[in-house]
Structure formats: C-alpha cells, structure tokens
C-alpha cells in the first residue's frame, strides 16, 4: 500500500516536472505579436483578429455562435432520435435532467407571464440554452485562425457586441409581440414605454460576458498566472457567468413579456355595474 502511494507520487511529480520543463523550453518558440492592451482591446472590439467565413470577415464571436448552434442542434437531434422515444413514465437520470431543464424554463415563463406563455417558454428555453452553452464554450478554448494569421481562442458568442445586440433586440421584439398579441395597440404602447430595454438588455449581456472574457484573457496572457488560477477563473467567470446571465435574461424577458401581455382589468365597468345594482 505504502509502495503504491510512493509510485503514484513519483509519477505525479515526474509529470509536473516534465510539463514545467516543456513550458520553459518551448517559451522561446513563441513570440507575442501584440501587447496586453492590444489583446484586451481586440477582445472587446474584435477589430483586428477577424475570421473568414465563406469569404466574409466576421468576429470570432459569430464563429462561436455557429459552432454552438451546430453542436446544440446535433445534440438535440441525437436526443430526439435515440432518447425521447425511450422516455418512460418513471424517468431515468438523463430523462430527469432534460425534463428538469424544460420544466425550469417553462416554469419561468409561466411565473413571469401567467396569461400567455406557450411561445415565451420556447423562446426562453432556446435563449437560456444558447447563453449557457455559448458561455461555457470558453472553457474548451477552441482555436481558430484569424485572417491576420494568428491563432485566436473562440470567445463566448455574446461577448461579441453584435451577438449581444442581436439577442437583446430579439428579446425586446419577443416582448413587443407579446404586447401586441395580448393587448393590441395598448400592448405596443406598454412595450415602447420601456424603449431603453433593448439597449439595457444588450449591454448587460455584452458587459457581463465581456468582463469574464477579459479576465480570462488577462489570466492567460501572463505565463505566471497560467497555473492553478485558470481553474478558479474558469469556474467564477465562465460557469457562474453562464448560469447568472441565463437566469437574468430569462427572468427579465419573462417578466416584461408578462407585464405587457397582461389583459387590462375592467374595473371601471365593474364599479358602474355595482352602482346600478345598488
């Protein structure tokens, strides 16, 4: 037993030493093309490192978005073909996970908008999955080659301002549609009253996810910070961000949707009828 422990410790130590030696020896092979400020600026604006998609230069965030969509749809198709037909009345662990996921978003939609929620449930489910998976994609550190020739790590789709604006504005349009369906012109008025909503939603998403991306970029820029710390940073700024931002967007969309689609109470008419009865 003691001998086994010694062997395990020796192997572990050897691996660590080999990794450190590899890091030190290969350090001279790579030269930094940009300073930390340039890296951070590019992480925010994506002006320099663009990726070519079918001849069009796009931000890395859009490529991440395509990858997320493809991965999620492939996973969903596999689940639909192989898992859903085998669903049982008493669920197994995987079925329980899927049902909890759908039930959670559906519940959020019902809580936020008790009057009208079937479309909202589907929307917040898709938005929630997109935000969570997109943010968690950062953990994988997928690399893509920029048009400038350098390798860039694919960021979360919503840390790209265009992605955040798209989702923020789409959420606002969904809220507006709820207002129109629920209350007609009055619903439009109610929605337009919160005209700052698309901006606040977009920039909240962008700011929250960008902050995580920036901290991660900063940590990975310096070699000295690349040990142990990424584990903490990965959990704090990626997974927690993913969960929190999913929750925030889903909750806000549901609440605003419920508010604008809520049918108007006919109190005046009731009062009038009560008076006539008296």
């Amino acid at each position: 037993m003691k001998k086994q422990k010694t062997v395990v410790c020796a192997v572990f130590g050897a691996i660590i030493l080999a990794l450190i030696a590899g890091i030190v020896l290969t350090d001279s092979l790579y030269t930094r093309t940009e300073s930390v400020s340039e890296t951070m600026q590019d992480a925010v604006l994506h002006e320099k490192n663009k990726i070519s998609v079918f001849g069009t230069e796009v931000n890395p965030g859009l490529v991440s978005a395509f990858i997320v969509t493809a991965a999620v749809l492939v996973f969903a198709a596999i689940v639909r073909i192989f898992a859903v037909p085998r669903f049982r009345i008493v669920p197994g662990k995987f079925q329980m996970l899927l049902e909890t996921l759908v039930g959670y978003f559906d519940g959020q939609a019902k809580n936020g908008s008790p009057h009208r929620n079937s479309f909202l449930g589907a929307y917040v489910f898709a938005a929630g999955v997109y935000i969570f998976v997109g943010t968690a994609l950062e953990l994988f550190g997928l690399q893509a080659q920029a048009t400038s020739g350098v390798s860039v790590a694919l960021p979360a789709p919503l840390s790209d301002i265009n992605g955040a604006i798209a989702l923020g504005c789409l959420s606002y349009l969904v809220i507006l549609s709820g207002g129109i369906v629920g209350n007609g012109i009055r619903g439009v008025g109610k929605t337009l009253k919160d005209f700052s909503l698309p901006v606040s939603m977009s920039f909240r998403l962008f700011g929250a996810l960008l902050s995580g991306a920036l901290v991660t970029e900063l940590v990975y820029y310096y070699k000295a910070l690349s040990f142990v710390l990424p584990v903490v940073v990965g959990v704090l700024f990626t997974l927690l961000h993913a969960l929190i931002q999913t929750y925030v967007l889903v909750m806000l969309t549901s609440l605003f949707y419920g508010e604008v689609s809520e049918p108007r109470k006919k109190q005046k008419k009731k009062l009038k009828t009560e008076k006539t009865e008296v």
Partner: peptide, 26 residues
Amino acid sequence: NIDWQQILLHLLNFTILAFGLYLLLY
C-alpha cells in the same frame, strides 16, 4: 465595431437554433 450584417447573421443563427430546439427538444 457594431456591424449590421453580423447582427443579422447572429439573429439568423439564433432563429435557426430556437426553431430547431423547439422542434427537437422543447
């Protein structure tokens, strides 16, 4: 670096994802 084309691409991407998720999972 706001780019309308990329915003529309993001929208298209998310719409496809939302529709697919609705049909396949939700």
